[in-house]
């Protein structure tokens, strides 16, 4: 029973990070019709920046005899997400915008080029050794669940995921900017004709999508180390999520993330060899049965 609770918590913990990643990918696709292959590497970049920042700050504080404490470290964590958002705000107008008039293959390709570039930029800047912000995990300790100990930080991530899901929903469906975003997504030319600055909406949407990816990476590093190649791995998982949930749908990203994490957690327990294959096969089955995913609209 306790093991079941721990496994469910684990799967929700995974789902929280995966949701952030997939929601960003989905938002960008929904508004701009871009499938961003570099999205996973934005996630990895966020993870590295956060881990590096927390590590450097803790070391600096310790050398001055200050203890940063849990709160101090947690506040530093989202810096990675902000860095990725800034990167996105540079990439969209310089690299992507010139290609909107061309066939979509070119955008896919340029994001693939970006993926390769980012992979090595991460290595160049942060080196090949894994980085973690494990000090947060240690500082927060663990809480008992029945007879088992469970890291308290994982619950924080679950909380972040829930807040992000609700916040994102309110943002898209209840704010003025959300209306602008949806209008641009539905009919770009009509939105422009009504006086919206579509170019600015695109930068903002892309930056928000990147922010979510970066946040997804940032919340993971206290629990798991940031390693090279994590972005490429994460991207295919995010693909599976948005294929199941539906391209461009936030609800879909949430449900998809929960399904994928549940399958992976169960997979590790019961069918470790074919865990990943099962995941991809589920995505294929959904794509064949409902091409637009569970929540997608054509």
């Amino acid at each position: 029973m306790e093991i079941l609770i721990v496994q469910i918590l684990n799967s929700i913990f995974q789902a929280a990070s995966l949701f952030l990643l997939a929601a960003g990918l989905s938002l960008i696709y929904g508004v701009m019709r871009i499938v961003n292959l570099a999205h996973g590497n934005f996630y990895a970049f966020g993870a590295y920046v956060s881990a590096w920042t927390v590590g450097a700050a803790v070391a600096l504080a310790a050398s001055r005899g200050i203890n940063l404490g849990v709160a101090g470290q947690l506040v530093l964590l989202p810096l990675g997400a902000l860095a990725v958002a800034a990167l996105g705000a540079i990439v969209e107008p310089t690299l992507l915008r010139p290609l909107y008039r061309r066939p979509e293959e070119y955008i896919l390709l340029i994001t693939f080029g970006l993926l390769m570039v980012l992979e090595d930029v991460i290595r160049l800047v942060f080196g090949g050794t894994p980085l973690t912000a494990g000090s947060i995990m240690d500082a927060m300790g663990s809480i008992p669940i029945g007879g088992l100990l469970y890291p308290a930080y994982n619950l924080v991530v679950v909380g972040v995921g829930v807040v992000a899901a609700i916040g994102l929903w309110l943002f898209v469906y209840r704010t003025r900017f959300g209306v602008i975003l949806r209008a641009t997504s539905q009919d770009r030319r009509m939105a422009a004709a009504l006086g919206l600055n579509v170019g600015r909406v695109y930068i903002q949407a892309f930056a928000i999508g990147c922010f979510l990816a970066g946040l997804g990476g940032a919340v993971v590093v206290p629990a798991q180390a940031a390693v090279l190649g994590m972005g490429v791995d994460a991207l295919v998982q995010a693909f599976v999520v948005i294929v199941i949930g539906g391209l461009g749908s936030l609800e879909g990203a949430l449900v998809g993330a929960l399904i994928v994490s549940a399958v992976r957690t169960a997979g590790v327990q019961f069918f470790a060899e074919i865990e990943l294959a099962v995941l991809y096969l589920i995505a294929v089955a959904v794509l064949l049965w409902r091409p637009t995913g569970l929540f997608g609209r054509a």
Partner: peptide, 25 residues
Amino acid sequence: RHTRIFFGILTLALSQVLYSLALKF
């Protein structure tokens, strides 16, 4: 059965089925 971006994602997902099988078996 699909074209455009769905075709791309479907081919990618299927190729990764083979990849994960090669990795795990």
